[in-house]
Structures are given as structure tokens and as C-alpha cells.
């Protein structure tokens, strides 16, 4: 990884600056800086439109108890749904990625890899429609069973007959982020240097031991990155939740009616909103932005912390 540095040294020591070089360098630099400007713009305009809601007197906000009281149940619903989705989705995704990269025959693996790439691109509105039409009704009886047999666990309260619950939304979110995490993980698993795999095998490793020794450590930063990408997508996922979840007030019962998430709240109310309500929703969006930002920074920190031992030879 020190090659780029040598390259830079080489180019800066070049006496003649060719027009092509200047143009290319300029366009590259310009684009890079533009990205910073766009991001600054996102923050700036959101804050500007959110300020009225943040400064308005408490009784004018929906619910009448101020912005914080309005937004925290939404934050709770958003985080819970995403975390459940991540917990359900990640192990399965890693499993599929390993299946495709190391267990299935090469051709089958490639085929499945392609299908998974396709599914990563299936629009969320389609997932939402499927979840609502096919998945939620099937889960109704399961919730009934959970409520009857595991009802002492707070999250399994009275069951919703329609299945339009936070749990259903979470499971659909899990299915949605599955292809994303799988796709990223498969990519890094396939990139595991052959040499390292063979080194492990030559030491007398079984297949799983080889994966544990060579593949997983090599792929871990990528897998974490993919997981966080998935979590980020789940946090911000709007349509699936907006379609599936019958929104309601905060509740610990995840298999009954109740709860809502920030993005769904925005999507459901934005088209008819005006004035302060608009500002309220944009402020909620800002909160969502801050949450995803925090998740991202956390992911980055984890990946960086492992960087010392992940350097390529």
C-alpha cells in the first residue's frame, strides 16, 4: 500500500505538467470537493427547515408535549426494527456468503451470486408489498402461538391478527438487507488470498477451520462494513415499513399493534403536511440522519481499529 505514495512522488517530480494531466487532476479534485459541498448542503438545508419545529412552543407540536416527546417513540421504533433486522439478517447473510464462496460448486455459486446481486436491487416498495400481501398474514398464527406460549416475555404481548406489526416489519427488513450484506461478504470472502487458504489447509485444517483461520479474519472488516451498510439501510428504510406496519403509539409489544418508525412517519404524513408539521417531519428526518451518522462512525471506528492486522503483504 505504499505504492500510491511513490506514484505521487513521481508525478510531482515531473518537470512538465501536461494539459491532460492538469485537466484530469482538476476534474478529479473538483468532483471530490463537490461531494463535500453537497453533504454540507444536506446538513444546512435540513437544519434550516427543521429550526421552526425545534424552536416552536411545546404545545404546538403534534402530541402537545414538545418535539422530544414527539420524536423519541419514533426513534425507539426505528432502532428496534433495524437492530432486530440486523440480528436476524447478518448470521444468515454470512452463511449464504460462505455457501456461495466456499461450499457450493463454483458454477452454482456464481449463479446464486448473480441472483443475490439482483435481489439487492429489488426496490423496497416491492418488498413492502410482498410483506403486506404474503408475509404478514402467514405470521399471524405464529404470533398467536408466541403470545400464548411465550407471553411472559414483554415483547410477545397480545398478538395482532393481521400480522402488521413491528416484528413483521423487522423480519421483512432482515430479508431486505440480506442481499446487501451477503453481496458485500461474498465479495470479500472470494477475495481471500488462495495462499492463505492453502496455508491453513496445509496445516491440517478442516474446511471450517480453514474458513475460521483464513477467510473470516480476512473478510471481517468487509463483513462489518456490509453489516453496517445493511443496518443503515434498515434504519432509513421507509417504504417497506410504511406499507407493512400499522402505525401506533409506543409499545413494548412487538407482535401486536403499535409503534412507528421515523422514515415511515415521514412518508405517511409528508404528502399532506404543511407549515409547522412539515418542519416537524424534516426535524425528525434530521434526527434519523444523526442516528445513521452515529452508526456509520461507529462502524468506521471498528473497521479502523482492526486495520493494523489487516494489512496486505
Amino acid at each position: 500500500m505504499n505504492a500510491p505514495a511513490t506514484r505521487r512522488a513521481r508525478s510531482s517530480s515531473t518537470a512538465v505538467r501536461r494539459p491532460g494531466d492538469i485537466l484530469f487532476n482538476g476534474a478529479s479534485l473538483g468532483s471530490a470537493v463537490l461531494i463535500l459541498l453537497i453533504l454540507a448542503g444536506v446538513a444546512f438545508f435540513l437544519v434550516m427547515e427543521a429550526v421552526p419545529a425545534l424552536t416552536a412552543p411545546a404545545e404546538e407540536i403534534s402530541g402537545g408535549e414538545g418535539f422530544f416527546a414527539y420524536v423519541w417513540p419514533l426513534v425507539f421504533g426505528t432502532v428496534v426494527a433495524s437492530v432486530i433486522a440486523m440480528l436476524l439478517g447478518t448470521p444468515v447473510a454470512i452463511g449464504i456468503a460462505l455457501f456461495v464462496s466456499h461450499y457450493a460448486p463454483r458454477r452454482l455459486g456464481n449463479g446464486i451470486g448473480f441472483v443475490i446481486d439482483l435481489l439487492a436491487a429489488v426496490p423496497s416498495v416491492v418488498f413492502g408489498m410482498w410483506g403486506m400481501a404474503v408475509f404478514a398474514p402467514r405470521l399471524g398464527p405464529l404470533y398467536e402461538w408466541l403470545s400464548q406460549n411465550l407471553g411472559w416475555i414483554p415483547i410477545f404481548g397480545d398478538a395482532s391478527a393481521t400480522g402488521r406489526t413491528l416484528m413483521t416489519a423487522s423480519i421483512v427488513l432482515a430479508v431486505m438487507i440480506l442481499p446487501i450484506i451477503t453481496s458485500v461478504s461474498r465479495e470479500v470472502f472470494l477475495q481471500t488470498p488462495r495462499l492463505h487458504e492453502e496455508a491453513a489447509l496445509a496445516l491440517g485444517a478442516t474446511k471450517w477451520e480453514m474458513i475460521r483461520t483464513a477467510v473470516l479474519p480476512f473478510g471481517m472488516p468487509g463483513v462489518i462494513g456490509g453489516t453496517m451498510l445493511g443496518l443503515g439501510r434498515a434504519l432509513g428504510e421507509t417504504m417497506a415499513v410504511a406499507i407493512i406496519l400499522a402505525p401506533g403509539v409506543f409499545s413494548w409489544n412487538f407482535i401486536g399493534a403499535g409503534n412507528a418508525t421515523i422514515p415511515a412517519e415521514i412518508a405517511l404524513n409528508f404528502p399532506e403536511a404543511a407549515g409547522l408539521r412539515l418542519s416537524e417531519l424534516i426535524a425528525a428526518g434530521l434526527v434519523l440522519f444523526v442516528i445513521t451518522l452515529a452508526v456509520n462512525l461507529f462502524a468506521r471506528w471498528i473497521v479502523d481499529r482492526r486495520a493494523e492486522f489487516s494489512g496486505a503483504n
Binding site: L195, H196, A200, L203, G204, P217, N313
Partner: peptide, 27 residues
């Protein structure tokens, strides 16, 4: 078989995520 017949490859391939000691002890 591979435990009894060790192998060294064309290019050095220590496990990058392991320390020197862990590499020696990997097998």
C-alpha cells in the same frame, strides 16, 4: 495427512491478521 506432511509455498503466506507468535502456533 496434511498434519503429517507439512507444506511451504512459493510465496510467503503468513496469516495477515495474526501476530508472529500466533502464526507459528496456527497449525
Amino acid at each position: 495427512v496434511r498434519r503429517q506432511v507439512g507444506m511451504v509455498f512459493q510465496r510467503p503466506n503468513p496469516f495477515p491478521t495474526m501476530s508472529i507468535k500466533e502464526n507459528v502456533l496456527a497449525g
